[in-house]
Amino acid sequence: MADMDLQLTAVASERPPRRQAQWIRTWFGTPGNTVVTLVCAGALFTLGRLVIDWLLVNATFAGTPADCKSATGACWPFLAAKLRYMLFGFYPFEEQWRPLLALILFVGGALVSMLPRLWGRALLGAWFLVLMPVLYILMAGGFFGLMPVPTSQWGGLPLSFLLSFVGLACALPLGILLALSRISDLPIIRILAISFIEIVRGVPLISILFMATVMLPLFMPDGITIDKLVRAQVAIIIFAAAYIAEIVRGGLQDVPRGQSEAGSSLGLHYWLVMYKIVLPQAMKKVIPPLVGLFIGFFQDTTLVTIVGLLDFLDTVRSAMRDPAWQGIAVLEGYLFAAAVYFAFSALMGSYSRFLERYFRTTHD
């Protein structure tokens, strides 16, 4: 009995190793770890010093292109001079408050829509019946005394968000329908869905954009033209729907067949079984690949330059080709564009992890 008491006392007196000791063993526990840690620390210190010198110490914060040309650091006056053009492209300078307001409304609406408890028909109706018409009126004008602005003058960040958001919002239901058609028991429906998905996925997006721009007008009746922004938007919707269909199909196949059989045994018809039972489970399983696809398509909107549209990255490139700044501010423009794309990608990645925790799709 005394021995047992001594053992219990010894166990109770043991304390978990301190976090500092664990950290030291992790980084310097062996000679190899010590060498790797010191080499990486030295490389990071050297790289960080060079970056800080270029960004801040030797940078030019005010002045002319000549001042930047003689400096060895970053040229921040370039961003100050070209910021509005990089954000809004050839949109009329006096009217650029309109795309700015549209961008603020869009981002605000997107942030509110990220809350799952607000999802429903009311939110969908607010987007398509209120917010989207307001955004279109702000961008296009022609109403309430706003000056009309053709889509050929739309550009920059609002155009990139418009193409990606509208394209993916319309492609998601089409992709779900294609996924359901691909696993359908009806041979004709299944063959048509498979043919569409494989053909679209078998060609690059730039080919579909080229066909929508060059080939489609050849088949239109005389005197009828389709706006090039609409053509690019339709091409993005078709291309994204094919990829979404394959992602959703993987989620559908992961749902046990007994789920749909249980719904049928309750007297529910096919579409109600899919809407109430199967699709909610399947969509939760494919959150990470869907978000990854959305991020990729937001970045792929840069390809619309082939149809004569200036997206955000192309306006940045165009700003760098200004004769006054050409060859002076190159890295600054690309860093600005990379920061914007990274901010969106990081936000979407964090949102994906939030949805996984919210719907409890992992076993952590």
Rank of each mutant, 00 (worst) to 15 (best):
P323D: 12
S345H: 02
I328N: 14
W325T: 15
A338T: 14
A339C: 06
F336K: 12
D322V: 04
F342D: 03
Y334V: 11
A337V: 15
G333W: 02
A319G: 06
S318C: 00
Y334P: 13
L335P: 06
V340N: 03
Y341W: 03
E332M: 01
F344R: 14
S318R: 15
L331E: 12
G333C: 03
R317P: 01
D322Q: 13
L335H: 09
S352V: 01
A339E: 07
D322H: 02
G349N: 13
G327D: 11
A319F: 01
A346Y: 03
S318E: 09
V330F: 06
D322I: 02
A339V: 09
G349D: 09
Q326V: 02
Y334F: 06
F336N: 12
P323M: 02
S352Y: 02
Q326F: 13
S318D: 11
M348Q: 09
A319C: 08
S352A: 06
M348R: 00
I328E: 06
A324P: 10
S350C: 04
Y341M: 15
G327V: 12
W325H: 08
M320K: 11
L347T: 13
G349Y: 04
Y341S: 13
G349Q: 06
P323Q: 09
S345R: 00
A338I: 11
R321S: 12
G333A: 11
W325I: 14
Y334M: 07
V330H: 03
L331F: 09
Y341A: 06
W325C: 11
A339F: 07
V316Q: 03
Q326W: 08
E332F: 00
S352P: 05
L347E: 04
V340I: 10
G333T: 14
E332G: 06
V330R: 04
Y341V: 08
A343G: 13
S350I: 09
A346S: 07
G327R: 15
F344E: 14
L331P: 12
A343W: 00
A338H: 10
Y341N: 08
R321T: 05
E332V: 09
F342I: 07
G349P: 14
F336W: 09
V330E: 11
F342V: 06
A338K: 08
A337W: 02
A329E: 12
M348F: 00
A343V: 11
A319Y: 00
L331W: 14
S350K: 15
A329K: 08
F344I: 14
A338S: 14
L347C: 10
A343I: 14
V330Q: 05
S345T: 10
S318G: 04
A346N: 10
G327K: 13
Y334R: 13
L347W: 01
Q326H: 15
L331N: 05
A319D: 04
A346D: 12
A338C: 04
S345F: 01
S352K: 15
